[in-house]
Design a protein around this nucleic acid. Sequence first.
DNA 1: TCGGCGGTTGAACGCATGTTCAGGATGCTC
DNA 2: GAGCATCCTGAACATGCGTTCAACCGCCGA
Lengths: 242, 242
Amino acid sequence: MRSTADDQTLRSRIRDSAIALFGAHGADAVSVRRIAAEAGVSPALVIHHFGSKEGLREECDAHIVEEVLGRKRTALESQGGDLQSAMQRWLADVDAHRASLDYLARMITDGSPAGDRLFDDLLARTETMLAEGVASGRMRPSSDPRMTAVLIAMHGLLPLLLERHLGRALGEPALTPSLVRRMTVPTLELYTHGLYADDALLEAASAVLAGDPETARGPRSDKAAGDPNQDPDPPRPRASDH
Amino acid sequence: MRSTADDQTLRSRIRDSAIALFGAHGADAVSVRRIAAEAGVSPALVIHHFGSKEGLREECDAHIVEEVLGRKRTALESQGGDLQSAMQRWLADVDAHRASLDYLARMITDGSPAGDRLFDDLLARTETMLAEGVASGRMRPSSDPRMTAVLIAMHGLLPLLLERHLGRALGEPALTPSLVRRMTVPTLELYTHGLYADDALLEAASAVLAGDPETARGPRSDKAAGDPNQDPDPPRPRASDH
DNA sequence: TCGGCGGTTGAACGCATGTTCAGGATGCTC
DNA sequence: GAGCATCCTGAACATGCGTTCAACCGCCGA
């Protein structure tokens, strides 16, 4: 990485250092000075190029978004179709994207607009993939296709979000290629046969929920809709900006 | 203000304010002054009671750990057995634990020892639940029970970790009880019948992985040695099992 | 040779942070 | 009432932060 770093412009080198540090520690925990030191430049140059720390953050977001969407697009076009395995393939050469992965995981969980975009894109692709799979008979229809798409999209993100615990639980230092390989068959087992041997639980749950009309479409249980106290904080304008 | 707040000791009120603010914004983004203001005390008192901001953080961690493990234990004992539905039940009365949930999600993703403890506990329970399910014939055996336990444990955490996107995708402001209810049947469908209509993909993948035991010798990169980007953290602590 | 112009820097500014400390308030004991 | 312990605070401190700014460098066109 250092070998190619010297012919980068300083600007892109700053951005790459920021992505690595933001990904590893979180944006709040990384100072402009540290990014500058990592990139081998002065703190002033960071501000000069990106206007502010927040500007740098946004450019990092945009860079990752483009990298991910672009990569996923080409992967899908070149191989046709299977999102699940496309994502597995993408995760497989993890070494090449090590710096991006942590950053990506943070984007998806930190509530940023860029993270929303990524998730929405993933969800849309998942939903059409499921629709096509069902139409072609390769996949089972769901009683709630939208929810099923959300569930499966979220499943695909798990190795990203819980890389740490996944590795710890299986004795690997991180999301190694061998770990990704080991995940493949158990994942497909679940997606092929499920977990339960019979449909007793499913039938029971369906019956209970169907028998309770408020559950399926009930506009509000006692207080959900009108209650502004969804937020843990006292009434306070959503201060998600910085 | 709060009905129950006044009879709390100031100490526990500070801790609860900290949990709410840490959960909502992340510990780094919340200052001692803001916690103090939220609890209606002086910043100095926060330090006096907890020694430091980090001390406060650790006490918040411990408090959440005890709350979660204690609650899960009683839920399991009183109902016997089914971890999946126990967790669903726990998520169902989400309003009561709103403040804890965001904090919990951060603990699990931020790499703290307390988060590790929680995940390990969840994984252990999941693993025994699966073993019992298989032994009793209610669940299908897996070719890799450990990995399957990890996958299912991680699945159970999804609503916590991706509450934001789950809500956004389905038009709810957060993880509402009705959302939890709507998840139930699609989740059970996946766990009962799976997603794929036949086992073509599973067979293919099994064949490939079995026939090619050393699939990835090529892409192993050699960059790791001296790369400073590789090691923003202390060397992976590898906190092995219990 | 000159002038200008991006790219780059060291030093500084104002500010918010975590923390300290001397002491005020309150209530209990003799 | 005096002494004491406990709980709590306002004011300050040192530090690190994001950011600004005047000036320096090396290059290129005139």
